[in-house]
Amino acid sequence: MKLVGVLLAVFGWLLPVVALNMTSSTGMRMFLCILGIGITLVAILGVLNKAHQKEAVWKQ
């Protein structure tokens, strides 16, 4: 799960960067940026955090 979280975070970063060459529309670029940031946040705060919470000290 931790590896999936990291890979998803990297994907969320690369999405708006690569998309710069796909479209010149400012609106579409902005949408893809927000989408990428959203994916990254889900990866960090959702996937990775959940994986770490499983072994949290207060659950032991």
Partner: peptide, 27 residues
Amino acid sequence: PTQLVAQLIGVATLLGFVFSLSYTANM
């Protein structure tokens, strides 16, 4: 509005690149 796009790409880079590199190195 194009400046905001540049800034959002910076945010995506901070979250996607900086976090991933820091996390991997510290793991």
